[in-house]
């Protein structure tokens, strides 16, 4: 069986919704971060797949995914720094617990 564009799209959609599900339901900040990474990667897959199957003469999609990977790395660094600080201050990384700003 030939692997076509649809297979990639199904994979990326599945990955996207797994990420969204994780983002909405998990309480642990690390897991949230991981879910966001999943969403970003599903987008990466989309970019690359579209690039390869629809516009093979261009490289735009590849470049975009490279940028997204770089930004995701930076974001992860910042997010983890925040999480560590949060842990030091509150002794927890549960999103439900860290609601001081709300009041």
């Amino acid at each position: 069986m030939e692997i076509g564009l649809n297979h990639f799209l199904v994979l990326s959609t599945a990955l996207f919704f797994i990420g969204v599900y994780g983002f909405l339901t998990r309480r642990n900040l690390i897991t949230l971060l991981m879910s966001v990474e999943l969403i970003l990667n599903s987008v990466n897959i989309n970019f690359v797949a579209f690039n390869k199957y629809l516009y093979p003469e261009n490289l735009d999609g590849l470049f975009f995914s490279v940028f997204i990977i770089a930004i995701a790395a930076a974001e992860a660094a910042v997010a983890i720094a925040i999480i560590i600080n949060l842990y030091r201050n509150f002794n927890t990384i549960d999103v439900e617990e860290t609601d001081t700003m709300k009041y």
Binding site: F23, L24, V95, D99, M101
Partner: peptide, 12 residues
């Protein structure tokens, strides 16, 4: 609610 995840849910 002030909960990020709820907002994300509404948004989605």
């Amino acid at each position: 609610s002030g909960k990020l995840q709820h907002y994300a849910g509404y948004f989605l």
